[in-house]
């Protein structure tokens, strides 16, 4: 017989936990070397950011799901941190191969990159936990109001910046289930069709810059 929705969700959670190293709550030796190779070592900033965002996440999770659920929020954040480090390492290995460089100082000191990567990791963990509630059409004990784009408000991240990491994240983490990939694709479509066009989105500034640089370029004469 097919697994019950609860059983299917439990299996997905177990797989997610199993794919993440138990000591993965800190950078591996390889990732630490990438940090050390930077012109400016990002180790302290990365650690400090995780502490700040972890507190913000737990607080908002408690507000949305109830104070008795704060511990579940902390567990989910812990899993997301392991996924964040794992995917970051895979992304850097792939970039090293592609660009033949080992110094990723600019990328690794970019707060938006780290926040986007963490947001994507959290979204994957949250979606894995809430899979059963989607399939049931109901809500689990934490409620469905925690689903995307809830995480963007919690981490104060623009949808446009979140969008940038999705494809690289999927490429870097081959163990993601089809359901999770489909979920990330749904987030991507939501951003592209609606959220990135809301007032205040950095997309407008970027479009303005592109327009200005295009206007400054001399117009090429038409080829005969």
């Amino acid at each position: 017989p097919p697994p019950t929705p609860i059983r299917a969700a439990m299996t997905s959670i177990q797989m997610l936990r199993g794919d993440l190293p138990s000591n993965g709550d800190r950078p591996s030796a390889t990732l630490a070397t990438y940090f050390k190779n930077c012109t400016v070592d990002p180790t302290q900033d990365v650690q400090k950011r995780l502490e700040t965002l972890g507190q913000a996440f737990s607080q908002k999770f408690g507000e949305a799901a109830g104070p008795h659920c704060v511990v579940y929020g902390q567990q989910r954040f812990g899993l997301a941190v392991r996924l964040y480090y794992k995917v970051m390492e895979a992304m850097l290995k792939s970039e090293e191969k592609r660009l033949s460089v080992q110094n990723f100082s600019k990328l690794l000191n970019d707060a938006t990159f780290h926040t986007s990567l963490l947001a994507c990791s959290l979204e994957v963990v949250m979606a894995t936990y809430e899979e059963s509630s989607f399939k049931n059409g109901g809500g689990d004990q934490t409620g469905t109001n925690l689903c995307f784009p809830w995480i963007l408000n919690v981490l104060n991240l623009s949808a446009f910046d979140f969008y940038k990491v999705i494809e690289s994240f999927i490429k870097a983490e081959p163990t993601l289930s089809k359901d999770i990939i489909k979920h990330l694709e749904t987030c991507e479509n939501l951003i592209m069709e609606r959220i990135a066009w809301r007032t205040g989105s950095p997309l407008f500034e970027l479009l303005q810059q592109e327009h200005a640089s295009a206007a400054a370029e001399p117009v090429e004469t038409t080829a005969s």
Binding site: M91, F104, I181
Partner: peptide, 21 residues
């Protein structure tokens, strides 16, 4: 099918998306 459609070219990666190449 739920296969993800990859849009990035071989010469593009996360470094370019955050303007860091």
């Amino acid at each position: 099918s739920h296969d993800y459609h990859f849009g990035l070219e071989e010469h593009e990666g996360i470094s370019e998306l955050f303007d860091c190449d």
